[in-house]
Write a protein that binds this DNA or RNA. Structure first.
Lengths: 123, 123
DNA sequence: TTCAATTCTTACTGTTTTGTAAGTAATTAA
DNA sequence: TTAATTACTTACAAAACAGTAAGAATTGAA
């Protein structure tokens, strides 16, 4: 099961209120976090196996990869195809809905790249 | 002083490596978090006082508002104008650089709004 | 029989982000 | 003298997020 938020914390209530009033909060909930953008980016090119994603996204742990894929699947942005083989094979692809994310991801990335020289990261 | 990350944690190293390879990680570092989108959204309309922002962004604490404004200022997306009056008056505005964020923020918000009906949030 | 490969799951720990609550400074108005 | 206003600052605590490491299921090959 995915990790749960404490539904009654002020933190969670603030998050909920934001979702209700602000489209951007929704978008960032889906796109945000450290790993989701990369996952969507790669799946934007083509359908991929779990192990391919893992290899393409340096340093991601299995826990994180599975967790983020499950969230994306739960919200209908990613589809999961299981092949009954041994060793197992599982492929992931963006759904039609998920594909609507691709231009957004790309424009975010393009904007970020224009900033690379200008700001001194991290933070 | 802003809160610091432990520079040697795997967490921080992963973040740094992402910034170096991925424009989107940069973009999300600037846009991400719970409150920055709203701040940019409102400043996208016009220059505002600190207290106006506070009133327009429900539930934000002063700690968060100050902190996020400082980060945006540090990276050059927001400019701060102090008027030597009592009680004090401080206004914030997007810089030219900051204004380049506005179309991105708006397209994220527009996309998020199309999702509002489709997905059942929070997570 | 043991190992290897792949896709996960689980329990645990550490790090980062967010929220709370109290306090500060400066001046004017009551 | 005291209170009111605005824009903060600080110390602390709670919640959320991310990473580590071990293990499980499957079955064919060594």
């Amino acid at each position: 099961m995915l990790e749960m938020r404490k539904a009654t914390s002020t933190n969670a209530l603030n998050a909920t209120e934001l979702y209700e009033t602000c489209g951007m909060a929704i978008a960032l909930r889906i796109l945000g976090g450290r790993w989701k953008p990369g996952i969507i980016w790669h799946l934007g090119h083509r359908r991929m196996r779990y192990s391919e994603l893992k290899a393409l996204i340096p340093n991601i742990s299995e826990r994180m990869l599975v967790q983020q894929l499950k969230e994306l699947e739960k919200h209908g942005f990613v589809e999961r195809f299981v092949f009954p083989e041994v060793p197992p094979r599982v492929e992931y692809a963006l759904t039609e809905e998920g594909k609507t994310l691709v231009p957004i991801v790309r424009s975010l990335a393009a904007w970020g790249n224009t900033q690379r020289e200008k700001i001194k990261l991290p933070v």
